[in-house]
Design a protein around this nucleic acid. Structure first.
Lengths: 182, 182
DNA sequence: GGTCGGCTAGACCAATCGGTCTAGTGCAAA
DNA sequence: TTTGCACTAGACCGATTGGTCTAGCCGACC
């Protein structure tokens, strides 16, 4: 579960991303976190002066960067918007199976934090970033600006909802079926 | 926030549903719960021998029953499936605004509990119940069985994803826009 | 009137929570 | 070699956690 080659800060971020995703922000104690990351408490508060909440923000950002890469990879070789979106659904289905059927890493981390406005603002920022990324590809693939916006929001909504249902069912099938709802 | 007329058990369930929805299962302590419900600890463990986890299941069930009523009310007077689904979107948008922009009560309660299989199985059961309810109305309104299944799953996915985005944005607009994605 | 059981009431508990603080390590620049 | 700083290490803290347990209230039935 741990990667001894990585620097402490990165190990903390990745452990946090993983644990928050599976058990939620409040469901993870510092003890679990530090054990998983093989780091002492002092290191946590050195790298993240505000402790758990700072770490949660960093973990969500890190997870979001990964998602942005998946979106880019899905659309980069695509000929049409539908092709790209379909590839994205398949990639996420595979990711879902590999991850052990966890929740959306952003929602599980940022939707229940103590410092509500800061967490929620960050979630909004991250989600808007995903939609914007899809939108860029939509525009590049020939959609009008208005169409690009509408369709990228729809892709986000479908994926978010599909992921939730997939988690409840322990099956990635619905994620692949999303391609028929584009 | 509390309804002194209601019996203790119901007050506990409704307080739990409300608090779990806003802060998540682990984000709510028994102390908050009991204060909000104006009940002593003894009553909790009398009505729910397994404590917090039993209460969470009951609260999710109660919230789900409300959702089933909203679905039924939306489709009952509808002439077409699209009409019913559109009404549902509007009703949920209004509910979202009234609720103070909370999360889906099922996801926030059941997706991070300690006893993972029991909680997740219950979430699946509830979600499948919602989809089944929509499906019944779809069939009644003339859709073929296969179409009814596909469209009811789609409605669920859209609502679930839309709700998440609405929460991040603190705006119910996207929920109303879902009608264009049906 | 007595008693029995559903329910309330909250003191109490060990365990765990997030966070602070001091001491020490090890590398890099002077 | 010495100094300084980024970082590690974990003991320690008060507060809070979920849960147990005993005592007693109070209305219903005998």
């Amino acid at each position: 579960m741990t990667k001894p080659a990585l620097p402490t800060k990165d190990r903390l971020i990745q452990s946090a991303a993983h644990l928050f995703r599976t058990r939620g922000y409040h469901g993870v104690g510092l003890a679990d976190l530090l054990t998983d990351a093989k780091a002492p408490k002092g290191s946590l508060y050195h790298h993240f002066p505000n402790g758990k909440s700072d770490l949660a923000i960093a973990a969500a950002t890190w997870a979001s960067d990964g998602m942005l890469r998946v979106i880019a990879a899905s659309f980069d070789g695509a000929d049409t918007f539908e092709d790209g979106a379909t590839t994205l659904c398949y990639k996420l289905a595979k990711l879902f199976d590999l991850s052990g059927w966890d929740t959306c890493p952003i929602a599980s981390t940022l939707f229940e934090g103590p410092d509500n406005t800061r967490f929620r603002d960050h979630a909004k920022h991250i989600y808007d970033g995903w939609i914007a990324e899809v939108q860029v590809h939509a525009a590049r693939l020939g959609l009008s600006e208005e169409e690009a916006q509408r369709k990228s929001e729809r892709v986000f909504v479908l994926i978010q909802g599909g992921w939730t249902l997939a988690r409840a069912r322990h099956s990635s099938e619905i994620l692949r079926d999303l391609r028929h709802m584009l």
